[in-house]
């Protein structure tokens, strides 16, 4: 009985990706991940911090990684309009049903995951000052 209780308590934590976890094949397919390194950013049009962070991600010019955005707006049209306004240059996956984001289950957005060979290397949750330089450091310094 104690074991069951412990399992139930730890269930919530089990359903969120964390560094070291390997992304499901299904999710990897949806995101278009292969064996390269990717910076996956979850954002929404109504998230004020995302509005500040996305232009920085848009200007990122990484040698050995590609940026992929996941727009979690439930209103897909509003999401697309938001992307158009920002002029996002990177590939964006619209996830109005939350199919992809629910697998990652971040505790807040914006959320940035650095993934290599489908394995999560780093996770940055919430608004961060100088997110671009942090990502550059993490991506360029890890081989």
């Amino acid at each position: 009985m104690k074991k069951l209780f412990i399992i139930l308590l730890s269930c919530a934590a089990l359903f969120a990706y964390k560094p070291g976890d390997v992304v499901d094949e299904d999710v990897a397919k949806k995101l278009g991940l292969d064996n390269g390194r990717y910076v996956v950013s979850f954002f929404a049009s109504w998230c004020h911090s995302c509005q500040k962070e996305l232009p920085l991600l848009n200007r990122l010019n990484l040698r050995n990684a590609s940026v992929i955005g996941v727009d979690v707006d439930e209103d897909e049209a509003a999401g697309r309009e938001f992307q158009r306004k920002l002029g996002l240059k990177f590939k964006v996956l619209n996830d109005p049903q939350g199919e992809v984001v629910s697998k990652f289950n971040p505790v807040g957005i914006p959320a940035v995951y650095i993934i290599k060979n489908r394995k999560i290397e780093h996770m940055i949750i919430g608004a961060q000052n100088g997110i671009d330089s942090k990502i550059i450091n993490l991506v360029e310094n890890s081989r």
Binding site: A44, W46, C47, H48, S49, C50, V107, G108, I109, P110, I125, G126, A127
Partner: peptide
């Protein structure tokens, strides 16, 4: 503070 996204 913030937009309710749980980021602050």
């Amino acid at each position: 503070a913030g937009g309710g996204c749980g980021c602050n």
